[in-house]
């Protein structure tokens, strides 16, 4: 199993992407998709990247639901900020957040989550001190943002990746 499918998640993703690209479920397309799904992960192994071991499937589902809800909600919040005529009391600024998460894939997921959510932008991460520099569009109180990143996302990511 290990030898045959070193990266099962990657294989599944490639299979689905290949089927979607060729836009058919006829035998030739399935054969091509299988070939891609079985061959490409071996290239990944040659590159020496480590396998993602997905733990805590419940946490993954909870995180996905949370992120989807947050993206929709903050789309509304940012739209409101943009449409607000007079609101000049809005302050935007940088924010430092110390992170416990060290796993590179976990950090990548966190970067995608934070940047995809309108209103927050991952700017810089210092691997030495584990400090993340975040830019926030609506910096009402810093505590709320720190609690959001650490309490809402980081604990779940820690359970998934570490």
């Amino acid at each position: 199993m290990r030898l045959f499918l070193p990266h099962p998640v990657l294989s599944l993703g490639l299979f689905v992407a290949s089927i979607l690209l060729s836009d058919s479920v006829a035998p030739p397309s399935i054969a091509l998709a299988l070939l891609v799904a079985l061959a490409a992960p071996h290239v990944m192994r040659a590159l020496g990247s480590e396998t993602v071991r997905l733990r805590a499937p419940g946490a993954i589902i909870r995180l996905s639901a949370l992120v989807l809800a947050d993206i929709v909600r903050s789309n509304g919040a940012v739209a409101q900020i943009l449409l607000d005529r007079r609101g000049r009391d809005r302050v935007s600024g940088f924010l430092h957040i110390p992170l416990q998460l060290k796993h590179p894939y976990g950090l990548a997921v966190l970067a995608i989550i934070l940047t995809s959510t309108p209103g927050t932008l991952w700017v810089e991460y210092d691997r030495g001190s584990g400090r993340l520099l975040l830019h926030v569009l609506d910096l009402v109180d810093e505590e709320r943002w720190v609690a959001l990143v650490k309490g809402r996302y980081e604990t779940l990511l820690l359970r998934i990746f570490e």
Partner: peptide, 13 residues
């Protein structure tokens, strides 16, 4: 730095 946030609206929802 404020402006970087704006295009995410179109790029997500």
């Amino acid at each position: 730095y404020d402006r970087v946030h704006a295009p995410t609206l179109g790029a997500t929802l």
